[in-house]
Each structure stands twice: as C-alpha cells, then as structure tokens.
Simulated assay, not measured.
Amino acid sequence: MGIVLSASALAQTASEIAPTGSLRAVINLGNPILARKDAQGAPVGVSVDLAQALAAQLKLPLTLIPVESAGKSVELVTQEKADVGFFAIDPVRGQGIAFTSAYVQIEGSYLVRQDSPLKSNDEVDRSAHRVVVGKGSAYDLFLTRELKQAQLVRAPTSPEVVSFFMAGTYDVAAGVKQQLEFDARSTPGVRLLPGRFMVIDQAMGLPKTRSTAAHQLLSQFVSDMKASGFVAAALKRHNIEGAVVAP
C-alpha cells in the first residue's frame, strides 16, 4: 500500500518535507474534534496521532507547535515556520498551502438564543442579522463567500465564539457543531438550529513551495491512514462524535 521508496529516496523526500531535520507540525487546539490539551496540558487528538505517524514514517523527530486558531496554523505553514498542518480545505488558504485529500469531515452549525425567532438555517442570511464566527476559521471563510445580507462579526478564536456571542447583542453564532453543542450545555438560554449549514473537509497540508515529491508523499500518507483504518481508530480512541472518515 502506498508509495514504496528506497531508503535514500525516503530520506531525500523527508528532507524536502522537513528541511530543518525535525518535522514541525502545527496543531490547532481551537478545533476540539482534532486536538485538545490533556490533563498535563499536552496536545492530544487525531491530528497529533497523524503527526506522530508521519514523523515515524519519515524517520524524523517530531516538533509539535500548538496554536489556538486555524488562522495561526495557516500563517505558520504559509510562512514556512511549520512543515505540516491540519486544515479545513479552502480556496483562500490554498493560495499558500498544498492540501491532501480530506481525512475527516466535520459539520458546521448555527446557535441562537432560546427566544430567537430563527427556526432554520435558511433564515439566517437576512440584513438584520449579525453572525459571530471565529476569525480566520473555515466558517469565517465559507460564510464570507456565502452570506449575501447578514453581517459577520469575528470573535478572536473559534472556542470564544459562544462567550463572545453571549456578551453582545448578536443574532447567531456559527462554528463546529460539536463545539457549539458542548458550549450550549454550559450556557443557559441557547439552542442549535437543526441540521448543518456546511460540511467541512479536513485535510493535511504543507507549504506550496515544497517539492512535488513532498506533496505526493503527504497525499499518499493520508490515503493510507484512511484506508488502513488508522483515522477511524483515532476518532474512536479520542471519543470524537460527529466527525466521520472522509470518503
């Protein structure tokens, strides 16, 4: 399964993926489906497991770079301060990042106050409505393109969306369905609108400036991790609900 490389070819490609000699993987703690902190404060999750598996395959030491937002992940990889990251596939981010195929799919949902007149997702895009999103998140990028009338208001990060929403006179909060469900359990007087407004394809990516061989190896790695059951097992091990292995 996958690309079979000689030891010398693997070493060469590894050096093209990670030119510093250590695989620098940026981990976005702002997406709890992919990563979070354990009791000791260390990053754990599906993305961490994949980073560890890739470093092992490349026979390189691993350096994890935890950040709190997707925007920071994009910045570090685009500026080549990290070698790989874990992102929602988006054409804006694709200007500086070469993506693999998706490894998981995640749902995006809307949250409103209990007394809101809004009942469905298609009622959100109205000129009177202000929608809170995490700055630079996949939802920010998607809704920037898709909402024609509602006004977007950007919270500093995705995990802060609900607290930001509750602190102001806003109409809707948008984000990862599981994050919103989690926040709703500890926030009185809110509810999620039924269904989803988008499905997010989560992929790995590396700087577009890296070689074709580097991109091909990372793409094959993701395909192998899906086909082998590694991704499904990681989702189960970390008790992740609502995300599925991408087709």
Rank of each mutant, 00 (worst) to 15 (best):
residue 212 T to A: 15
residue 109 S to T: 04
residue 142 F to C: 01
residue 70 A to F: 02
residue 218 L to D: 06
residue 118 L to S: 08
residue 79 Q to K: 13
residue 83 D to T: 00
residue 221 F to D: 13
residue 221 F to T: 13
residue 139 Y to E: 11
residue 103 Y to Q: 03
residue 225 M to C: 12
residue 84 V to A: 06
residue 241 E to R: 08
residue 100 T to H: 05
residue 57 Q to A: 11
residue 153 V to Y: 08
residue 180 L to A: 12
residue 76 L to K: 07
residue 247 P to R: 11
residue 237 R to P: 00
residue 156 P to I: 07
residue 227 A to T: 04
residue 53 A to C: 02
residue 217 L to S: 14
residue 96 G to I: 14
residue 223 S to G: 05
residue 85 G to F: 07
residue 188 P to C: 13
residue 96 G to T: 12
residue 158 S to A: 15
residue 3 I to M: 15
residue 108 G to M: 05
residue 110 Y to L: 03
residue 206 L to T: 01
residue 217 L to I: 07
residue 236 K to V: 08
residue 242 G to S: 00
residue 162 V to R: 01
residue 34 L to G: 14
residue 236 K to G: 00
residue 19 P to C: 14
residue 94 G to I: 10
residue 167 A to Q: 13
residue 67 V to A: 05
residue 181 E to H: 01
residue 16 E to A: 10
residue 129 H to F: 13
residue 18 A to M: 05
residue 144 T to A: 12
residue 157 T to Y: 00
residue 160 E to L: 10
residue 18 A to Q: 03
residue 176 V to I: 08
residue 44 V to Q: 08
residue 79 Q to N: 08
residue 222 V to S: 07
residue 13 T to Y: 09
residue 225 M to D: 06
residue 136 G to A: 13
residue 104 V to H: 04
residue 47 S to K: 02
residue 198 M to W: 05
residue 116 S to K: 01
residue 222 V to Y: 07
residue 16 E to Q: 15
residue 168 G to N: 14
residue 48 V to N: 03
residue 114 Q to L: 15
residue 192 L to K: 03
residue 175 G to H: 02
residue 186 S to Y: 11
residue 135 K to G: 00
residue 227 A to M: 09
residue 129 H to E: 03
residue 93 R to F: 04
residue 114 Q to I: 12
residue 213 A to T: 07
residue 69 S to H: 01
residue 149 Q to S: 14
residue 226 K to E: 06
residue 123 E to L: 14
residue 188 P to S: 14
residue 203 A to M: 08
residue 232 A to Q: 15
residue 155 A to M: 03
residue 42 A to F: 02
residue 101 S to D: 15
residue 135 K to A: 14
residue 167 A to W: 00
residue 191 R to N: 05
residue 48 V to T: 04
residue 25 A to L: 13
residue 85 G to Y: 04
residue 158 S to V: 01
residue 39 A to M: 04
residue 80 E to T: 11
residue 89 I to E: 11
residue 95 Q to W: 12
residue 167 A to D: 11
residue 135 K to W: 02
residue 10 L to C: 11
residue 164 F to L: 07
residue 89 I to P: 00
residue 232 A to L: 15
residue 34 L to P: 00
residue 100 T to N: 13
residue 110 Y to N: 01
